[in-house]
Design a protein around this nucleic acid. Sequence first.
DNA 1: TCTGGGGTCCTAGGACCC
DNA 2: TCTGGGGTCCTAGGACCC
Length: 435
Amino acid sequence: MSRALALVDGNSFYCSCERVFDPKIATRPVIVLSNNDGCAVARTAEAKALGIGMGEPYFKIRELCEQNKVAVFSSNYTLYGDMSARLNAIYREWAPEVEIYSIDESFLDFTTIPERDRLAYGRDLRATVRQWTGIPTCVGIGPTKTLAKLANHIAKKNDDLGGVCDLTDPAVRDRWLPKIEVGEVWGIGGASERKLLQLGIETVGDLRDMPARSARQLMTVVGEKTVLELRGISCMELEELPPQRKGCAVTRSFGKPVKTLDAMLEAVSAYATRAGEKLRRHGLETSHMVVFMHTSRFNQRDPSHSASKTIHLAESSADTLDLIDAAKRGARAVFREGFAYAKAGIIMDDLIVAGSGSRPLFDAHDREKSAALMTALDAINGKYGRGALVPAAAGIKRREWQTKFDRRSPRYTTRLEALPTALSGWTTGAENSMV
DNA sequence: TCTGGGGTCCTAGGACCC
DNA sequence: TCTGGGGTCCTAGGACCC
């Protein structure tokens, strides 16, 4: 039997999550902003119709939003992550194998569904997800990941398809591919698109039919795989288990510019604290850390400064205290007086599995004590919320640098007191998923 | 004037994704 | 006034070695 994959994704996912918990905005335009309330990163169809672009800075569209009663939210990742888990729980009932590709997209193995039933199966899946979670989705089906992605794109752009498109049949592909711009293909970004257009390759059909060798020359092996996948030749497997994570970063724009070393040390300490949580959750450690900071790249008036410093730890660790110490050392080395910093962060590459690294001959560290302390710290913060307990070494006092989330929705899925009261006539299905 | 040839490893930067 | 965060993969080119 030939393989069939389905890509299921949530429409305007973050916005749809907000709508599930606030039925009053079901028909209003909705947008969700990036960290620091910076840019629009999710828009409903109604918001797109107003001309709000992806990634558009909020200060440029604030008036437009006010005039049109757009519901504007800061991002609430806890909520979106919870909703994502609910979707995937449903997907697992509907497919033997599921790969979670991103917070709002999963690949499902549809191979065992007979070809003639796939469209109907996809429609049933959509309806079920909608009923159980309140989230609208689209389903794209194809013999390869790239074609499933493309089918999903077609389903989204053509309302008459009922939210599902199947590109399993080569004859169906022959009809659609010449109608779609090459830049819509998964893996073809702006740079590749420009190169392709120069060669007169304008549609997905053109791309599929170009010689694979030319694709490789133009866009490396990645481009060559894309061409093959468009022909129905699979180059990317379904990955049920997420691979070992290779890196980990915590970076933030500041709510207000940071001008003092004290505030900078506070900020990077908070980032190191968060980094420690992430490392421990994945059972990983790091032996070095890059600390960076820079002024605003948009501000042309004030002097700019951008720099980074790599700090090597005495031994690899996921202990928050070690990470804070390294982050502070890095920040001290990089920080310069007289600049208004807009952003800072820490980046850790080459992560290793905790405990697998070499130990120094004379180990000054009591690793057991450290592990016990971190386990207790994570348990308390897991129970009472992130930040309930913070090491004094972080020296967090003023938080004037803290990222803005002025328009965050309540913690519907994590705080009992934030549960909405069910309204009569509210039938999005959200109640079902909360009981 | 002419001034090895290959390997490997590492890093920085580009490109792409959501 | 106000412009996100966090990943992966690939390649070119330099350092280094025999």
